[in-house]
Computed example of a mutant assay.
Amino acid sequence: MAWTIGGILAVVALAAIALQIAIARDGPAVLSAVDRVSGGDGGAELKAKITTGDHPDQKLLIWGPKERPTLDHARPVLLFVHGGSWNSGDPESYDFVGRAFVERGFIVALAGYRLGEAGQYPGMVEDVAGAFAQVREQISAYGGDPEHIVLAGHSAGAYNMMMVALEEKWLRAHSLAPDAISGIVGISGPYDFLPLDSDSTKAAFGHVEEEQALKATQPINNVNGDAPPMLLIHGEEDTTVGLFHSKRLSRKIQAAGGTATLSTYPAMSHTDPLISIASPWRNRRDIVDQIATFARYVKAQK
């Protein structure tokens, strides 16, 4: 019996290690697969795939409830922007985000943007602004409220959507302003990363040679008191994007008269908050409920 129990424990340990390796290699796709097996569909389904530009990375995936939406009860909308160091990632790997928040009463839009050389600054920011404009224009057809759209993003995606929220010119190109955004959820985001000291930041921003223009690429340098309300989530053990990014941004937003809530997690790394959105982890942690509560609350305060 002891050998049998030991063997089972060894298999479980090996399975856990294998899962961690798989997540490291293609985390979001693995999370989506685990989520689907562990949590089922949550009553959610992919409603549409919308092209937002000429490049294959420019797309929106719309997730909603299986039942037909009622026209007199539009759902709040969560527009989620994936990470990946501005050189990788695909919204089609983030089904778990759609299922998690549709189950909690939202319509979810997963946004893609140009990556690598094609998406060098400002391309990736322009694409997220364009995605927001498309969602605002089309989401009512899927049961979403175009007046209640919360922007969320992880890592590089958090940077992209934060720039859209803080610097007016990106939405102005679509005849919109940042006050069209109900709220912002930044997860493990980089907001203050000068000087450029990593391969990913150099690849995405290194072509910006003029010093003032480079400074303008930083969310921390575009803060104003009129920004939409923010929820900033960050793991204290994040060695990829340090906690100081969210701390500095929240302090500066508050000093400017804006609203920024910082939520930190002592034992979490860079990807742990994202993993917490997938089943079975989301039932053991409060991140999904925290985001959902914030996203509903900002509508009432707008």
Rank of each mutant, 00 (worst) to 15 (best):
M1H: 13
A2N: 12
A2P: 00
T4D: 02
T4N: 00
T4K: 09
G6H: 00
V11M: 14
A18I: 07
I21F: 13
A22K: 06
D35P: 00
S38D: 02
G42F: 03
G43M: 11
K49I: 12
T51W: 00
P56W: 11
K59P: 00
L60V: 07
L61H: 13
G64V: 12
P65G: 14
P69K: 06
D72L: 13
P76V: 05
V77D: 07
V77R: 02
L79Q: 11
G84Q: 04
S85I: 00
R99E: 06
A100P: 04
F101K: 10
F106A: 01
V108P: 05
L110Y: 04
R114Q: 15
R114C: 12
E126Y: 05
A129L: 07
V135F: 14
A141M: 07
Y142I: 12
G143V: 06
G144I: 12
P146V: 12
E147P: 01
A158V: 05
N160Q: 14
M162W: 01
M163W: 02
L166K: 06
E167L: 03
K169W: 10
K169V: 13
H174C: 05
L176D: 09
S188M: 00
Y191M: 07
D192W: 00
D192F: 05
F193V: 08
S198L: 06
V208S: 08
V208K: 09
E210C: 04
K215I: 05
T217C: 14
N221S: 11
N221M: 06
G225Q: 07
D226F: 13
L231G: 07
L232H: 03
L232P: 05
D238A: 06
T240A: 14
V241G: 05
G242P: 00
G242T: 13
F244S: 14
R248L: 14
R251C: 00
T259K: 11
T261V: 14
L262I: 12
S263R: 15
P266V: 15
D272Q: 14
P273H: 03
P273S: 06
S276M: 03
S279K: 14
P280L: 09
R284W: 15
D286F: 02
V288N: 05
V288Y: 00
Q290M: 10
I291N: 07
T293Y: 10
F294N: 01
V298A: 03
